[in-house]
Design a protein around this nucleic acid. Structure first.
Length: 430
DNA sequence: GCTGATGATTTAAA
DNA sequence: TTTAAATCATCAGC
């Protein structure tokens, strides 16, 4: 800067013709040859620019006016703009070429999907539909009330979002206009090209869009909270109806040695219970772990279902028809039909009643007597105890020493478990 | 309101 | 991918 000033002072003596406030000798011509004269002109203008702050306001205004009206001004302006373009702006320009922010895109997509952004869709009908689906398609008054509540709250979020967005946009436009006017004004004395103004506008927009992103993020969070509050399946948990539970329990206890229904069996159970396959899987997962954890607690239940199964088996046998139970993957019941009438698992459920057999579970004498009764019933049906001895019937099966079902790991492709002396085919029976 | 039951979710392992 | 196990969140009976 000092060097520049010093150099510029060395050119003093060259002035602007016909302008007030300039040395008289400067106004009399360009002086010397054309080339030298132009150089001196430029040097003089630069010097005046550099010293403009040292002058009084009136003097500065007069010089400013003189500069604006100078014949060399447009050329100088262009040159400075060009230099600026090649240096600062070229660097800045490279930085500005950014791909669209993926996070912003995600937020936009989510807000669109939720019906918060974009055109009004009846207060988030898509989300309401999702709510209906999540609640198992229930269409009771309770559901509709909750959905309208959900919609109301979503509409509130939408309104707040749009209000804030409008505010941001308004502020952005105001600020942009202000900056543009300022830059345009300054472009009369500084080398500011329209392109640079445009870039500045883009920078302002980016700054504001980062604020917008925060708004979108907050809105998304609010929607997520709302969704979890209203749509979270856990919050919407409803116990299965009694009949469904009975069907599931019936299957579980009749396949106690291998309570891993195949996909087909799950589908069939799901159909019968009016629940999804996933729910069937959940139910069996829960049941297995809870049964294993506390066999004693489930003894009575197991006993009851074993008895029921036995009775069904008896009826089935005497009527020559099949009981209504889904087949296990390794049972040889007719495909698609519910066949548990002759399942060897019946024995397993009976065995499970024998507390000595499983992890120290206690079984009372009454249970033992029921087991005996069941054995009797089973033996009467003919075909269930074929080839089985009393020892086989009471040998520990199903849950092994580690607390797992023997053939649990391959539920969908179960083959016969290892059959040692005194063992019973886990699911056999055919 | 407390407590057990229960359906769903998450995490780790195979 | 399926399962066990742990955990969460709600339901339901008292």
């Amino acid at each position: 800067m000092d060097e520049q000033t010093r150099l510029m002072h060395s050119h003093s003596g060259v002035g602007m013709a016909g302008h007030p406030g300039l040395p008289q000798h400067m106004q009399e011509g360009t002086g010397g040859s054309d080339g030298d004269g132009r150089k001196q002109d430029i040097g003089d203008i630069l010097q005046q620019i550099m010293t403009i702050t040292d002058q009084s306001l009136d003097e500065a205004q007069a010089r400013k006016h003189a500069l604006n009206c100078h014949r060399m001004k447009p050329a100088l302006f262009n040159v400075l703009c060009e230099i600026k373009e090649k240096t600062v702006l070229s660097i800045r320009g490279a930085q500005e070429e950014e791909p669209p922010d993926p996070q912003l895109m995600r937020l936009d997509n989510m807000l669109l999907a939720e019906g918060v952004a974009g055109p009004e869709k009846g207060g988030g009908s898509a989300a309401a539909a999702a709510a209906a689906a999540a609640s198992g398609g229930g269409s009771g008054p309770e559901n509709s009330t909750e959905h309208s509540d959900y919609r109301t709250k979503l509409t509130q979020i939408r309104q707040i979002y749009h209000t804030e967005l409008e505010k941001y946009e308004q502020a952005c436009n105001e600020f942009t206009t202000h900056v543009m006017n300022l830059l345009r004004e300054q472009s009369r004395t500084r080398p500011i090209s329209p392109k640079e103004i445009e870039r500045m506008v883009n920078i302002i927009h980016r700054k504001f869009s980062s604020i917008q992103m925060q708004l979108k993020q907050s809105t998304c969070e609010a929607v997520m909270i709302l969704r979890s509050r209203f749509l979270d399946a856990r919050r919407k948990r409803r116990n299965f109806n009694k009949q469904a539970t009975e069907i599931l329990n019936e299957y579980f206890y009749s396949h106690l040695s291998n309570p891993y229904p195949s996909e087909e069996a799950k589908e069939e159970l799901g159909k019968k219970c009016a629940i999804t396959v996933a729910q069937v899987s959940n139910w069996f997962g829960n049941k297995r772990i809870r049964y294993k954890k506390n066999i004693g607690k489930f003894q009575e239940e197991a006993n009851m279902y074993a008895a029921r199964t036995a009775v069904n088996a008896t009826n089935a046998s005497s009527h020559g028809s099949q009981a209504n139970s889904p087949s296990t993957p390794n049972s040889a019941g007719s495909a698609g039909s519910f066949n548990m009438s002759n399942s060897g698992d019946l024995f397993m459920s009976v065995q499970s009643l024998n507390g000595d057999s499983y992890q120290g579970a206690q079984v009372g004498a009454n249970v033992q007597s029921q087991v005996d009764t069941l054995r009797h019933v089973i033996s009467q049906t003919g075909g269930y105890s074929e080839g089985l001895t009393a020892n086989q019937m009471y040998s520990p099966q199903g849950i092994n020493a580690n607390g797992g079902w023997q053939d649990a790991p391959t539920p969908s492709s179960v083959t016969s478990p290892t059959e040692g002396p005194g063992s019973v085919h886990s699911d056999t029976s055919n």
